[in-house]
Design a binder for these strands. Structure first.
Lengths: 244, 244
DNA sequence: CCCGAGCAGTGACTTTAGTCGCAGCAAGGA
DNA sequence: TCCTTGCTGCGACTAAAGTCACTGCTCGGG
């Protein structure tokens, strides 16, 4: 890593965040003057749900995980944010405590801006507030998507859906199919899908038995993408009775 | 119904909406000039998810239901909004289609403001944008709550939770306990809890068998509020093995 | 090179959820 | 009054989800 002048670094980091992409350099410097740089190690907790802290966190580098955890040790991931994303915007606007916890998936660099600083900045630059609304709106959509999945689909379908998505984005074609590395341990996937580890282990095994995929350690090769996609809209059991 | 001067009616209606509560009468009139009055009958659909319409709906009177529906006829209610609330704010800010459908629970009066009108109003009055952020934030919190329920609790617990909440708000003390009228049919409750009608019928029956409540038609009398509350944080089965 | 920690893969159940089909009831219209 | 229509209450199942207890595997450090 090359040492860089701190101020310039912060300004360029802010500019990279989509949220502020159309601000002038002067405005960026203004905002940067109020920002505090922080660093979190992998696995570290930024804050827990219910905490009454304040301020906006903007991700410069790394990856953060927003999640809910239950008494029984279960977890449900609400979102994973990468560079340019932000976290903990809600308390900035309504002052209420965080509705969820956030931890670092990888080592992460964060810019922290206090609640009052950001509020006054929004009042001075109304278009930032509108952009922020779009960001919060995007998050809202994702939450609606999660609710839809939890309420209407089975773990099997969610898993199939995840595999299809991964195949389309990160899949590498091989001789027999599309190979995708699993993003994280079964436990982590379980948290994202709102279920438990065992089901994340068993369901792919079942898909393998059906000839749709091939499982080897942390790599899954999709053999029959159409077949996998078909699982997504099976409103109930039709091929359960159809097979033999 | 007394006939009222239309303009004054709209202005007072807007002022009543918490969203605009601290605007001057002049500003309200300005906004009202762009608002269109609409009426929807009970059960009528304002729009469906995926529709690419545009504009903010503000509820003057009545009640709206925001919900997601699945291929298999299932439904999941995301929110119910009353007078002063608003609906369909997302597409106003990001231009994307509605993530859910909205229908009228009762006959409802709505003020409709087009997307561009509201955007420019926000730019002119930054504090309105901030308020809007708080409103969207509140909705986000509620969605997180729904996710938490769906992902961590059983239907039994959700139902018990609902009964406790109702008992505290609308319950009437009677000789033996707290009587609460069910808000809607079993089908509607099932939609709110993200399950099916039968479970909304059976679970209270089971609670009755356990002596916690008494079911009669659409009225439920809570006999043992502490007992009912205890269900909420039973991380798993302790009294299943404990009884008899 | 061995050891321990964490992760993946089962088997055997238990508990919840959801499906199907049907019966009884109450209210309102023809 | 009779007859539909919509809502509720079951019973009997099927299918998912989740729990518990173990077995290996792999990888990295002492």
């Amino acid at each position: 890593m090359l040492p860089m002048p701190e101020q310039g670094n912060v300004v360029s980091a802010l500019g990279a965040a989509s949220l502020f992409s159309n601000l002038s350099p002067k405005e960026l410097r203004l905002l940067a003057a109020h920002a505090v740089r922080k660093h979190y190690a992998q696995g570290e907790l930024l804050f827990s749900e219910g905490d009454a802290r304040k301020g906006l966190h903007i991700i410069v580098g790394g990856k953060l995980r927003i999640f809910k955890s239950s008494a029984g040790g279960r977890e449900q991931v609400l979102a994973v944010e990468g560079p340019g994303g932000s976290v903990a915007e809600l308390p900035v606007f309504d002052g209420a405590p965080y509705p969820a916890s956030v931890s670092a998936v990888e080592d992460s660099q964060i810019l922290f801006i206090s609640r009052s600083d950001f509020r006054s900045f929004c009042l001075a630059h109304p278009e930032v507030a509108l952009k922020k609304l779009a960001v919060v709106g995007a998050r809202l959509r994702r939450l609606v998507g999660i609710i839809e999945e939890l309420s209407f689909t089975t773990v099997r379908q969610r898993l199939a859906s995840l595999l299809v998505r991964l195949a389309q984005t990160e899949g590498k074609r091989t001789g027999h199919g599309i190979e995708i590395p699993l993003p994280g341990t079964h436990q982590e996937l379980a948290h994202q899908l709102g279920t438990v580890r065992e089901l994340v282990s068993r369901n792919p095994m079942r898909l393998q038995a059906e000839g749709l995929v091939q499982v080897e350690a942390r790599n899954i090769t999709v053999l029959d993408l159409p077949g996998l996609t078909a699982i997504l809209d099976s409103s109930s059991r039709q091929f359960l009775t159809a097979r033999d």
